[in-house]
Nucleic acid binder design. Structure first.
Lengths: 110, 110
DNA sequence: ATCGTTAATCGTAATATTGCAATCAAACGA
DNA sequence: TCGTTTGATTGCAATATTACGATTAACGAT
């Protein structure tokens, strides 16, 4: 059906999945890595950095913004983007916890 | 077109996106969290833990396996699943690095 | 006012994903 | 052998995603 049954999962699981899904595309990973590399907010040059047409990039930026991964503020005629630290704090903590739990479980089966 | 232009991104970006995409669904997050919770390899009871039909679960497990997030080994008539530590080491390191870089960049714009 | 620039939105085509009923295949036990 | 159990595969319908041309909206400069 193409429709995810979100109502059967926990709030937390849905939120985690939403963040990860937003990052689950190479163009959006590239956007994040670019925002990280330039070390400051970027006003406008994101389209030039990606091998995709402007409407496509705009759409990816929108998805990242909806998921809470980037913030964007209008700056005259262009728009200023940067990463939202909260999202990465949350993801970093999530995977650190998973890894810790995993290392503590000492299973020998697989 | 529905077709991701992977050829224009780096190997690393594609690999990261693939891992994150595989985790970008609440059912697959739930599978991971279940495998973590039971503290050992799980042979078979995953279908009963999820509010989804057996073929659907089987498909999600397949995607997680292809992405390298879980391992599965046949154990007689049932199949034994567990998490692949390497994937979580990689993801944990990735987000820790992003967060560190982000905290060092001290941007005041947004 | 008009033009150029920047970025969002609309519309659409191609493809992917999600979910499940039905079916199949392999392994086990009686 | 035959039935049962377990899990994968097939086939399909509904919906989502990806990508982009065309258009639009907002701003600044001339």
């Amino acid at each position: 059906m193409g429709l995810t049954k979100t109502e059967f999962f926990t709030e937390s699981q849905n939120k985690t999945a939403m963040l990860l899904k937003a990052l689950g595309h190479p163009a959006r990973v590239a956007i994040v890595e670019h925002l990280l590399k330039v070390k400051t907010c970027v006003c406008g040059d994101i389209v030039n950095e990606l091998p995709l047409a402007q409407p496509t990039v705009s759409q990816h930026l929108k998805e990242l913004k909806i998921a809470g991964i980037i913030k964007g503020s209008v700056e005259g005629t262009s728009v200023c983007y940067c990463l939202d630290e909260k999202a990465f704090e949350s993801l970093s903590a999530y995977f650190t916890n998973v890894l810790t739990d995993l290392q503590n479980q000492n299973s020998t089966c697989c």
